[in-house]
Design a protein around this nucleic acid. Structure first.
Lengths: 345, 345
DNA sequence: CTTAGCAGTCGCGCTCATCGACTGCTAAAC
DNA sequence: GTTTAGCAGTCGATGAGCGCGACTGCTAAG
């Protein structure tokens, strides 16, 4: 692709992002600093249109970028990207958070406020996190609350129905036993070690110990796959719709689809973790999304190191988003989260 | 107010709720079963309008209820209300939940799905809940995760910065000590007892014990006032807007305001707990809300017994809501939650 | 007090014409 | 071959004009 075409497209996209209105050949001729007339620009635009980078909302309107157009623009941005300047105010803020959960909550808040879009943070399921502490609390005769704390204060809990009732006292010593024996292993290792131990101890016919181990195993069972997702600032997108007075109905439908998806967190988690398998910064634009519900929106996300696996922070906004800013922000926050996590653990 | 007027208003409101379009005098004359002509109905409507129960969107349109009109209608509904029939399928579903948190999550889900509106459940802050279990987990040298479990599996946690580091082992025995001494008291009592104990023990110059007690006190400190709010199904309201094709812009603005409020959960909690101080079923309609952000919406809520204090479940929807159904639903779910909680504790 | 009848009001949807912001094309200029 | 000026053409947006229809309020008779 010719350099001129790229230059024109770049101007067009950035202008459209700022103004939200189709860009005319005349405007581009005047502001592209290539010294071309509008007629020439029209030729170029014609070719860009053939290639599918821009389109006209209707004949006799200026051009608007297509998703491919945005894609090219973003790729250019990413190619020329430099290190985000460190933001001490971010770091200070994020350092205050107690648990990793708090940290991600704060991170999504930051992203949302700064970008006026949806900010999110997803802690990757991490079966290789280290078990820090486990605790059993008797709720009723046969119901036990199992609390699992992993490194960094990541806390999950679930209720387990047991076959036979526990004596109030036994659970305490059970927890002490498990903690003494298995704390410090990763969640996966701990589960395996427990299963192993059950086999050994079976020989000893220690029924109580067997029950304790079984309880611990069941407590650890579901824990790893549960990712936690923090989402903030969905209401910001209302402003965008209000501003985008053009196609209100379509915008409303798109927003509805998005909100429905946001409520089904599981679905969103699935989607996010699928689009973002690459390490580093990812941008997914409009129709590039697997789910049609997101076709009107773009995603800018970056991964961070969380133990041995990766988590994700990012923003979601309309395809007509300030990608430059979004990329800077997300990159900066991801790196900051990284640093803070390193320090924590 | 004359019986005739009431009858007419009732028909008008229920028809408007069903159809969403202004109701004409002719329609009312034909369906009100009072054997009146449309002209007479017009007279009556004129008086209802003077009194502020109905209004015309424009001259030469039918009538639409005002918030006062809805109010009267709802009061009539409430006056003629009978016990909700028990819903075994609800009860079965709610009984499955492990913790009280799960229960309320499920309840809000139920309400949302059944009413196609926002369903919520708010566990009242309850300092008179009984302390079941407390646990300390060392995160780093001077940071301790305090986990508090109250009756019914109500679980909260917070991170506390301590002045000096704890030895890894000491926290376990600290927790054991606290549990042995203070479990079973209400949260308030426990806190007081701890403060009391600190004073006694100070004489003994047991520095470690002092620190343990201080930690427990700080852990219990913020716990009681933190209400937990579960909200579900906000996206249902998009459908209403889409259907209500009339005043899309206004509807959109209203929805935006609502979503902003939903994101500020604290604000919503404040609002809910203020509107619902009465025990039993409450309906708050449109402009009756303190916050102007909710002027386009109505709230149907009912309280349930949660320990010694009350919690709330309910739905939020447009002022043009099927109040009859909503009231039945909310009433039924509140009572079911009540029963399940009684059984739990 | 009720009712039939009638005049009046007003929003909605239709058509039509104008305007203006673009474009694509063509033919001349470089 | 590429660029450019000029021009004709397209199409959406805007607004006026108009008739329709769905109501109402009023009035006068029952």
């Amino acid at each position: 692709m010719l350099d001129r075409q790229r230059r024109i497209l770049e101007r067009l996209v950035s202008e459209y992002i700022e103004q939200g209105e189709p860009v005319s050949s005349a405007w581009l001729a005047e502001h592209s600093e290539l010294g071309l007339s509008s007629a020439t620009v029209r030729n170029i635009l014609g070719r860009l249109e053939e290639q599918g980078f821009v389109r006209q909302p209707h004949t006799s309107a200026g051009r608007v970028p297509t998703d491919s157009g945005y894609r090219l623009y973003v790729d250019l941005l990413l190619a020329g990207r430099r290190k985000p300047r460190p933001r001490p105010e971010f770091e200070a803020r994020l350092r205050q958070s107690g648990t990793v959960g708090d940290l991600l909550e704060q991170a999504s808040h930051l992203l949302s406020r700064a970008s006026h879009q949806i900010g999110f943070a997803l802690a990757g399921a991490n079966p290789s996190l280290r078990l820090q502490h486990i605790d059993f609390v008797r709720l009723e005769d046969t119901r036990v609350l199992v609390i699992v704390v992993a490194a960094g204060g990541r806390i999950t809990h679930k209720v387990i129905e047991t076959d036979a009732p526990y004596e109030p006292g036994t659970l305490v010593s059970a927890a002490n036993y498990i903690n003494a024996e298995f704390a410090g292993l990763t969640l996966d290792e701990a589960r395996e070690a427990i299963v192993e131990r059950m086999r050994e101890e079976r020989l000893l016919y220690d029924a109580l110990l067997q029950r304790t181990l079984a309880l611990a195993r069941r407590g650890l069972d579901g824990v790893a796959p549960v990712d936690t997702l923090h989402v903030q600032g969905a209401s910001f997108l209302f402003d965008e719709v209000a501003a985008d007075s053009a196609d209100r109905q379509a915008a409303l439908d798109a927003l509805g689809a998005l909100f429905r998806m946001l409520e089904e967190k599981d679905q969103l988690i699935e989607l996010l973790s699928r689009s973002i398998d690459a390490v580093g910064l990812t941008v997914v634009i409009g129709s590039e999304h697997a789910s049609p519900d997101l076709h009107a929106f773009s995603l800018v996300a970056s991964t961070f190191q969380d133990g041995d696996r990766v988590g994700t922070v990012g923003v979601i906004g309309p395809t007509r988003m300030r990608y430059q800013r979004a990329i800077m922000m997300v990159d900066g926050v991801a790196q900051t989260v990284n640093r803070v996590l390193d320090h924590h653990s």
